[in-house]
């Protein structure tokens, strides 16, 4: 599935942990961090989710916005 995705993890990420997500936009909101970007397929989102797990971060939510049809 291609399109924009937005992942929220709890807490404010250190510079080191932000560096684990090159290519994603990292924004801080109160008590959470929002990682957002574009994916070509579901595998790319899974790669990000795996990395979040591997870093020991706590996933709050995942939002996927399918690409609007061309035209």
């Amino acid at each position: 599935m291609s399109g924009r995705f937005e992942i929220r993890v709890s807490g404010r990420l250190s510079d080191r942990t932000r560096a684990a997500f090159p290519g994603l936009t990292v924004e801080e909101v109160p008590a959470e961090t929002v990682l957002s970007g574009w994916s070509r397929d579901a595998d790319e989102v899974h790669t990000v989710l795996d990395r979040i797990q591997a870093l020991g971060l706590e996933l709050v939510s995942l939002l996927q916005v399918p690409e609007p049809p061309e035209g």
């Binding site: 993890v9 990420l13 020991g56």
Partner: peptide, 9 residues
């Protein structure tokens, strides 16, 4: 405010 893992590492 950092995540647990982040802080502890």
């Amino acid at each position: 405010e950092r995540p647990v893992a982040d802080y502890l590492v």
